[in-house]
Nucleic acid binder design. Structure first.
Lengths: 229, 229
DNA sequence: CCCACTAAATGAATGGCGTTCATTTAGTGT
DNA sequence: ACACTAAATGAACGCCATTCATTTAGTGGG
């Protein structure tokens, strides 16, 4: 049985090889890194609908069943992709900017990355950090930033969870159709809402999803910022 | 072709029948309301994994293909279920409580309902309101409450969207495993985060998801509350 | 009264999916 | 040269949503 996703290699010792009791065939066509990048490519080209184990195997010139020597399920592949994507989330501001700006930069970057991968959100949201080392690394960077900014330690995790929840929900908004709030023929029975929608449309040309995200994010930053020592 | 979900019957005239040019068979075993309630029951009993068109048809004593006379896809059924569930979200506080308490009550109720139905969230989040009359009614009640409280009209929709995003993301948290933040063997390489997780665990016995939700919600309420006239 | 018309239900078929498994292939250390 | 093993194969399996030609059974108009 191959190493499962839940026991990833220690990134600090990439040479570390699992204990083996006999010879190992050299010509390994497949490995988790290769599967991950092929999956990411395939998703980029065909979307999540076109992302099937058969299609993934085809891009790797391999039989579908061969994948199961390196991965225990399709969900496993999604977890690998998710963790890889998380390394694209920019946490650098936590070492260069004041706390509020760091949170802002991180949150926008986080939403940006996953708004193109909303089918992963149900997976991420309930995934133990043990199964996602790069995600864990992101949490570490953010936690360190909160700590450095004098944020009360017992609330750090809750604040991150709250921010993340808002970010995930907002990632969906980005993909919503532009006319999602058009009440159409029922407009006359919903005067308050219809009027509010019209007023929004009159506003600047900024994307509605961006306006809502900014509004909520600034409220969260202000509210949490007041908790610092 | 049967009436689609996107053209629901006017709730104010339940007797209104679509124009027909010839006789209509009386023994209609199936209709959208029956399908919706059967679907809800089935989901309650078997979860979303057990919710298949075949299983749904079985509970209605009907062939799977018969469903397609009343519904155009499985997604359509999910939309019906979603809209029905939304009528369980409590918006009454907007007519009885001050604005901040009304938002609080509504948000907790909203999260409560959909935390048991997270597979619907990807559907709701991008669903045009036209296809979901009860959801539209909820927006109307909330908009009216914001208006009455002196909230600037051009920001009402953005505020609701932000709150909703936070609620949807938080609904996932409720279903996450308790040990989701256990960094396990990698604890020593993530000292800040591990320490923050430990500190959280030392706190009261309130569910972590509830603490995070409360933290974020209060920040949003405070931030948005300051915008009122 | 019955006939033309229709909505609704049927059951078989389709194509795709994720996954399993017995088997084969091909390197490796002893 | 042999024992051992990881990895790849290809054929199956069961399940899924959906389609479609056909049948069933009511109804209003003549």
């Amino acid at each position: 049985m191959p190493a499962a996703t839940s026991a990833p290699a220690d990134p600090h010792r990439p040479d570390a090889k699992p204990h083996r009791r006999a010879g190992r065939p050299a010509a390994a066509v497949l490995d988790q890194a290769g599967i991950t990048s092929a999956a990411l490519q395939l998703i980029g080209k065909s979307g999540y609908d076109g992302f099937t184990m058969a299609a993934l195997a085809r891009t790797l010139n391999v039989a579908p069943s061969a994948l199961y020597n390196h991965v225990s399920s399709k969900r496993d592949v999604l977890v690998l992709v998710q963790d890889h994507l998380t390394s694209f989330v920019d946490v650098s501001a936590f070492e260069a900017e004041p706390w509020d700006q760091a949170v802002r930069d991180w949150a926008w970057s986080y939403r940006e990355v996953f708004s193109k991968h909303t089918p992963l959100i149900p997976v991420i949201a309930v995934l133990p950090v043990t199964d996602a080392p790069k995600t864990l690394a992101m949490y570490e960077a953010v936690s360190a930033g909160f700590n450095r900014a004098g944020f009360p330690e017992e609330r750090i995790v809750s604040a991150i969870v709250a921010l993340e929840s808002f970010i995930f929900g907002s990632a969906y908004d980005v993909t919503a159709p532009a006319d999602i709030f058009d009440s159409g023929s029922m407009a006359e029975s919903t005067p308050y809402f219809t009027s509010a929608v019209d007023r929004l449309a009159e506003q600047g040309d900024e994307r509605p999803a961006d306006v809502a995200f900014s509004l909520g994010l600034e409220a969260l930053i202000a509210g949490f910022g007041a908790m610092r020592a």
